[in-house]
Simulated assay, not measured.
Amino acid sequence: MSRHVLVLTHPTRPAAQRSAEQVATELRRHGMTPVTEDEIAATEIELVIVLGGDGTILRAAELIRGRDAPLIGVNLGHVGFLAESEVDRISHVVSRAAARDYAVEERMTLDVTVTRPDAPPVRSWAINDVSVEKAERERMVEVAIGIDDRGLSTFGCDGVVMSTPTGSTAYAFSAGGPVVWPDVEAMLLVPISAHTLFARPLVVGPDSRMSVEILSRSYTSAVVWCDGRRRIEAPPGARIDVVRGEERVRLARFNLAPFTDRLVGKFNLPVAGWRGEHDNP
């Protein structure tokens, strides 16, 4: 029985296309069948090899949502926090995949419901984050935030980011949120440029509900972005509810080193002078 592997790459980078051809050649050499994006609907996929940055990995997760196939990211971008390997190790990636020599790590997702006046609710999901952003650059959006259906604060701001631990190194990090280790079951709420004395990042439990209401007095509408890929309009009077997602994302891992090492490597953090029991690789 043939083993099918979806090969997904950045659509506009010539280097990515060349790398995809190399992956396809290596897969055939190992007796596996490469599958393109156009062929996945009628094919049972064992694994997904993604060539690109984190954005391409997010797109791959969207394409295979509802399937059990894990993702292996090969970084062609800049930081590539979700990627497992670099582009110069394609042969190694395919040989490990062929031998099924990898562990599968499951990551939390978010489910979001946007309830709007005089319109049906809109539902979506995210791996990294759900961001609520002002629709007009020159105005603040007025919001009320709540946790577990209890009001917490109201303020004007540029937006609010609600994130998984996976997304804590993405938009939420840029907005001043903490880095949360991916094995921590928690969710983050991080205000963006809030005009208030209390606008600290929040870390809440995995069973909590994070809510953002666009106040009727707001001078502008908001836009809800799910992983920066799926857009939902949120006019004044809308409410955005975010909870832990019912479906998790599966990532294939070759390197089981602690997340600390990944953090140091991706951000090029200085560790000279560290005298702990274990050295960073």
Score class of each variant (00 low, 15 high):
P11Y: 07
V35Y: 02
A20F: 02
E37A: 11
T25P: 00
R29C: 00
T25N: 10
M32T: 02
T36L: 08
P34C: 05
A20Y: 05
A24H: 07
A16K: 07
V7Y: 09
S19W: 03
A20G: 05
V7G: 08
Q22W: 01
A20C: 04
S19T: 12
R29P: 00
R18L: 09
Q17D: 05
T12Q: 14
P14N: 03
P11F: 12
Q17K: 13
V35H: 06
L8D: 02
Q22E: 15
A16H: 02
S19C: 15
T9A: 13
T25F: 05
H4N: 13
L8K: 14
H4W: 07
S19I: 03
L27H: 11
D38M: 11
E26F: 10
P34N: 07
A20E: 10
E21R: 15
T9S: 12
E37L: 11
A20L: 08
T36H: 13
D38F: 10
A20W: 02
R28A: 08
T36V: 05
T25I: 07
R18W: 02
P34L: 06
A20I: 05
E21D: 06
V35C: 06
T33D: 00
T36Q: 13
T36C: 08
A15Y: 01
T12K: 13
Q17L: 09
R18M: 04
L8Y: 11
S19Q: 08
E26T: 04
M32N: 01
V35N: 05
H10A: 11
R29E: 13
S19L: 15
E26K: 09
Q17M: 07
V23Y: 09
T25D: 14
A24L: 01
L8I: 15
E37Y: 07
E21H: 13
G31C: 04
V23E: 05
T12C: 09
V7I: 15
A20T: 10
D38K: 13
E21T: 06
A24P: 01
Q17P: 01
L6I: 10
H30L: 02
H10K: 14
G31N: 08
A15T: 09
P14D: 07
E37D: 13
M32C: 01
S19P: 05
V23C: 09
E37H: 09
P11A: 14
L6Q: 14
T25Q: 15
P14V: 03
A16N: 10
Q17R: 14
V35S: 02
E21K: 12
A15S: 11
R28I: 06
H30Q: 12
H30V: 00
Q22Y: 01
V7E: 12
L6C: 13
V7K: 10
P14T: 06
P14R: 07
G31M: 10
V5C: 00
L6T: 11
L8F: 08
A16W: 03
